[in-house]
C-alpha cells in the first residue's frame, strides 16, 4: 500500500523547501543579529554618512546609493550557507535522491533567502515614513527604488547561491560571492569605468556598463521603470539559478 499522494505539484514542493529554509533562518539568534546589523548600517549610511537631514531633499538617495555596497557584504552571508551547509552536513545526499527535479530545491532555497533579504529591506520602510513626515517625497520614485533594491538583492543572492553550490566551505563561498558581486557592481561604477576609458573604445565601455547590476539599479532608482532594467535582473536571476541547478546535478555525488 502506498502512502504517497500524487497531488503535490511543483509549486507545492518549492513551497515546502522554501518554508523549511525560511524557518531555519530564525532557528537561531543569527537572524536577529543579521537584521540588527543591517538596519544599523543602513541607518548609519542613510542618516549620518549620507547626511539625509542636511541635504534638505525629501528622497532616500543616500540609502539607495549605499545599499548595493551594503549588500556586497550582507547578502553573501545569507547565500554562503544555502548549499555549502547541505554539503557539509550531508543532507544534500538525501535531497538529490528525492524523486523530483533539482530545480524545485534550487527555487525553494533561493526564494527563502530572497524573502529573508526582503524582510530586512522592508524593515527600512520607517525611513520612508520619516521622509513623509518631514517633507513631501516622490512616493513613486521611492516605490521604484525599493523595487530596484529587492531585485538587486535577488540578483546578488542568485550569484551567491550558485557559488555556494560549488563548494563545501562556507568561508570560500562568502569570499567568492563578495568578489564576483564586487566585480559585477564595479563595472557600472563611474570611477571604475573612467580607468577603463583611458585605453578602451567607448563601445566597450558601454557594453561593460550595461552588464553591471549597478547601471540597471541606478536607472530604476531614479524612478523610471524601464522593462529592460527589470528584465536584466529577472533574466540574470534565471540564468544563475539555472547554472545553480546544473552545478548541483554535476556535483551531486561529491
Amino acid at each position: 500500500m502506498s502512502v504517497q499522494s500524487p497531488t503535490l505539484g511543483r509549486c507545492g514542493r518549492v513551497y515546502i523547501v522554501f518554508r523549511r529554509e525560511f524557518r531555519s533562518y530564525f532557528a537561531t539568534p543569527l537572524a536577529a543579529v543579521f537584521l540588527v546589523i543591517f538596519l544599523f548600517l543602513a541607518g548609519l549610511f542613510t542618516f549620518n554618512i549620507g547626511s539625509l537631514y542636511e541635504r534638505g531633499q525629501a528622497d532616500l538617495r543616500p540609502f539607495f546609493q549605499f545599499v548595493p555596497w551594503l549588500f556586497l557584504l550582507i547578502l553573501p552571508a545569507i547565500s554562503m550557507r544555502l548549499w555549502a551547509e547541505e554539503r557539509r552536513t550531508g543532507t544534500i545526499e538525501l535531497l538529490v535522491t528525492l524523486p523530483f527535479a533539482l530545480s524545485d530545491l534550487v527555487l525553494g532555497k533561493f526564494f527563502a533567502a530572497w524573502a529573508f533579504a526582503v524582510v530586512a529591506i522592508l524593515l527600512t520602510i520607517p525611513f520612508w515614513f520619516t521622509l513623509a513626515w518631514l517633507g513631501d517625497p516622490d512616493h513613486g520614485a521611492l516605490c521604484t527604488g525599493y523595487l530596484a533594491t529587492i531585485l538587486l538583492a535577488g540578483f546578488m543572492l542568485s550569484i551567491g547561491a550558485l557559488i555556494s553550490a560549488w563548494t563545501k566551505n562556507q568561508v570560500i563561498a562568502f569570499v567568492l560571492s563578495v568578489a564576483v558581486s564586487f566585480i559585477i557592481l564595479l563595472l557600472g561604477y563611474p570611477a571604475a569605468l573612467d580607468v577603463v576609458r583611458a585605453f578602451a573604445p567607448s563601445g566597450v565601455i558601454e557594453s561593460l556598463a550595461s552588464t553591471s547590476a549597478l547601471t540597471h539599479f541606478d536607472a530604476l532608482m531614479r524612478g523610471v521603470v524601464d522593462l529592460r532594467d527589470v528584465l536584466y535582473f529577472v533574466l540574470g536571476m534565471a540564468v544563475f539559478l539555472w547554472l545553480n541547478t546544473a552545478v548541483i546535478d554535476w556535483k551531486k555525488s561529491d
Binding site: V3, Q4, S5, P6, L8, S24, T89, E93, L94, P99
Partner: peptide, 29 residues
C-alpha cells in the same frame, strides 16, 4: 535511502524532520 552520513536537520525536531520529508514526497496524512 538511509545514507552513511546522518541526513537530518539538527535545528528541527525529530517530528519536523520527518514531516519535511513526508511533505516533499506528498505523503497523504
Amino acid at each position: 535511502l538511509a545514507p552513511q552520513e546522518i541526513t537530518l536537520y539538527g535545528e528541527l525536531t525529530a517530528r519536523e524532520n520527518l514531516l519535511f520529508f513526508a511533505s516533499l514526497y506528498g505523503v497523504a496524512n
